[in-house]
Amino acid sequence: MSTKKESKSGKVVPNGTSKHFLERCASTNEYFDIAFKVMLLGDSAVGKTCFLVQFKDGAFLAGSFIATVGIDFRNKVVTVDNVKVKLQIWDTAGQERFRSVTHAYYRDAQALLLLYDITSKSSFDNIRAWLTEIHEYAQKDVVIMLLGNKSDMANERVIKREEGEKLAREYGVPFMETSAKTGVNVELAFLAIAKELKHRAVQQPNEPKFQIHDYIESQKEKSSCCRYV
């Protein structure tokens, strides 16, 4: 049921103004209060699918490279401040030939996780192009987060953390390094997104505005010990 309503809401909304509804929805297997669409973007082979699988199932897809075909839709319900938030996550194929499909879904997305691979310079260099594209196709108030993935592969690193931070500052988006393999910061990235979206959707009049940057900074101290320590 919920899916159907969602889809309608997604379709009715003409020009990207987000509509959220707070109602207890019953899907066939999971209850949730609120639903959001999150999209994973970035060059092919930066680890988007692995990143998602780590979040969803807590597992790492080792072994052979399986390219995502088109877009892959998966759901995960997380709890934020006692509210059940369903994240409908769109895992996209990074390949050039799928660009036109993904464009069509940009405007429905409320949050975008933009990944690069710290061991691939080209994937980092392409981030600017991705951001240009996002500004062209996505909603104005879309939540964007920049992620430098594969932080476990320290030996093959070619992009310094500082470079990622600098780029993120330039575009005013939160940033962190993650590892789909070890799980570092994976859940945090989704939770931060969920919190931000939930706060935007159901902000109480007297509640202070949620600061995603601060939240991330405070949380990631704990876990991002991977490189320098």
Binding site: V53, T68, D72, F73, N75, D91, A93, V101
Partner: peptide
């Protein structure tokens, strides 16, 4: 040839 359809719903041209 793709295992990625197992979990979610795939959408592809």
């Amino acid at each position: 040839s793709s295992s990625s359809f197992r979990e979610g719903e795939g959408w592809t041209p």
